[in-house]
Nucleic acid binder design. Structure first.
Lengths: 372, 372
DNA sequence: AACCTCGGTGCAAAGGTTTGCGCACTCTGA
DNA sequence: TCAGAGTGCGCAAACCTTTGCACCGAGGTT
């Protein structure tokens, strides 16, 4: 079996000694290192002919710039840090990927860090990233230390009134949609909310604008606006990790109250899944005995039993917007024009209601839904 | 609202001029930069007292090492590159996260790149990573350029017989489990395979040991071993991206053959989901009219209609093993002992069969399954 | 003919850290 | 008193690139 060598495209330094440096290229091309550097930059001061020579020498040697050296000199790493609670959660992974696409097109690479929803973790993550001299930050904060150095944009958990940019799902709008659907289309009045506990914990601080909090507030507001009661026992909470198990537990209790709700709004997809599991275990016929809708669309939720009515987020779009916002900041900073706030710095991206069956809606062309 | 400043723990350079350097610390502590460097390294040559002074000065100044400079000097970036087809796919995200945990514990950070299942993309990703001087690589290759410089371990798609380490799911064993269950427990003889086309495409090369290929081969082998027929029309293929839509299409055709299969094995979770969607659209009662089992467990597959029988991978374990294997290589290299092959360099991690209903098994304690 | 301009290029410094080498000093034992 | 062995620490090179400044020669201007 041949070595993998035979496949690598382009010329490669045959003497496996040492990566060639600018000096080597300069020697081969018969010019100075500065000329090589400039030629490779596409600097217009270097005429085509010289550039030609340089490029030839460079490719002949298989020359690649040493990024550490460059970073040291330019004080810029072309690295963007992304910090998320948990990259294994579909939302964060999708946002990351989308953001990454636009960032890479601009020449940046991405380093990820997980905070495990822990402010401490987040603090060290952010510090590590600073040590790395990342040029910018994309963060779904867990409520910890907020960086005050360098361009940063938040997504998911939001930090308003601080001048720092953010883009986040339209939690208020989405919740309104959900409540309206339940209340006006289906006539529910006993609507419960299944979320995670509001307020800070030992592991997190500053939760005022966490998605969970925003959704709960919005729920209260629109219920209030419709003169619908929100008795405390209709507020069910899972745990801070949004686990299915905790939701299951919470729903079990919720359904044991004297006058159980006729509809449940789950504040997230995992919560909705937990709720569904528990309701099924308790022999409820979801969609007829009780309505269940979800903020955030679980994957393949059209195949669930019953198919779940939910809000679809535009995760990819959100990631792209965030990245572009960051790129703007990066560019602005580079060209020295700091407060060039021409682009909007706070964005909410809307959510779409996907009506399926768990809310009680009739099965219209049940299987026609195209896959994601 | 106060600035975020009030939260940052530890002292911070109050004069926002410039990050302090070794020189600054040295000046403050009244020693030379080399001493500072060594003291901060915990070098035993520096006695406790001196170290004390240095550490105090460093923290007073809020000193943090400049990683670019260090990388330049040491020729090591403490960066590990992870390349995957698509980070938004749960498997890769989970593996990444697990690997990340062990890597970070060892002081490495992680930079991710997506290849979009395209050999070209992969090649440039790998090159970019090399430019970054990553110390090691964790790659789920899309069949492109194989790096021959520096420690690398593969997962998922495997490169055998090359001395390069890998850890990958036990595709053969898993497929055996699946076929046996269908054939001996349920007595099926007309078993179809739903996979993705084997062999290279324009976008990928060297697919011999891609998971899809391994699974197909295994299917053929165990069917053969059991003297079960594998007519060509029982081999259905989606597309190379494993999309649900393509699986749907393939299954639609599969069920139109003269003598349709009584059981289908889907080679991946998305494929299984597509199959399920199509079978439901075609009014089959999955689990009674026809059996469907899946390699790879779809998320919340116990809530599907019907709950899906599937193979559960130990993704986190796989990620951790890969990372540890890489770490071993990194250490070995650092201490100069290159071929110190004390640890196994090729590992297969087993899969567990989760019996649910789509295979035709009876509903035993249907809702008792604990959430993931 | 003296002066300017300007395109093209090179010199050398700067960026911050690590580390081989060796200096200066203090003990110990003869 | 001195050789020899530690001990504690500093010097300076090396890592590689970018970039301000200056130089040089050619062509144009006055």
């Amino acid at each position: 079996m041949p070595s993998s060598q035979d496949q690598t495209p382009g010329p490669v330094d045959p003497s496996r000694r040492r990566r060639p440096t600018l000096t080597d290229v300069a020697a081969m091309a018969g010019v100075s290192v500065s000329t090589v550097s400039r030629a490779l930059d596409g600097n217009p001061r270097i005429p085509g002919e010289t550039r030609q020579k340089v490029v030839e020498a460079a490719t002949a040697l298989g020359f690649r710039r040493n990024i550490s050296a460059r970073s040291l000199r330019t004080q810029s790493s072309m690295l963007v840090g992304v910090v998320v609670p948990d990259i294994a959660i579909a939302f964060y992974a999708t946002v990351l990927k989308a953001a990454q696409n636009v960032l890479e097109a601009a020449g940046y690479q991405v380093v990820v860090m997980n905070t495990e929803r822990d402010a401490q973790h987040e603090t060290v993550a952010l510090r590590t990233l600073q040590d790395r001299q990342v040029d910018g930050l994309l963060v779904a904060t867990s409520g910890g230390y907020v960086p005050d150095r360098g361009p940063v944009v938040f997504f998911d958990h939001v930090i308003p009134d601080t001048g720092l940019g953010y883009v986040s799902p339209d939690n208020a709008g989405g919740m309104t949609t959900l409540v309206e659907h339940l209340a006006v289309v289906h006539g529910h009045t006993r609507i419960a909310f299944l979320g995670v506990p509001p307020g800070p914990t030992a592991r997190t601080q500053r939760m005022e604008h966490a998605p969970a909090t925003e959704r709960l507030e919005a729920f209260r507001n629109v219920m209030g606006a419709r003169r619908l009661p929100v008795p405390p026992e209709y507020l069910a909470y899972g745990d801070h990790e949004w686990t299915e198990a905790s939701a299951q537990q919470a729903v079990a209790e919720l359904m044991r109250v004297a006058e159980p709700p006729t509809a449940i709004i789950a504040a997230g997809d995992t919560l909705a899944l937990g709720a569904l599991r528990q309701l099924r275990a308790d022999q409820y016929k979801v969609g007829t005995d009780i309505a269940l809708v979800s903020f955030d669309d679980p994957v393949s939720s059209d195949l669930l039993d019953p198919p779940m009515t939910a809000l679809r987020r535009h995760d990819r779009e959100l990631g792209e917007i965030s990245a572009r916002m960051l790129l703007d900041a990066l560019e602005g900073r580079k060209s020295g024009v700091a407060p060039k706030t021409e682009h909007p710095t706070e964005t909410r991206v809307p959510l779409d209601l996907i009506v399926r069956r768990s809310c009680g809606c009739a099965p219209e062309t049940p299987e026609s839904e195209p896959p994601p």
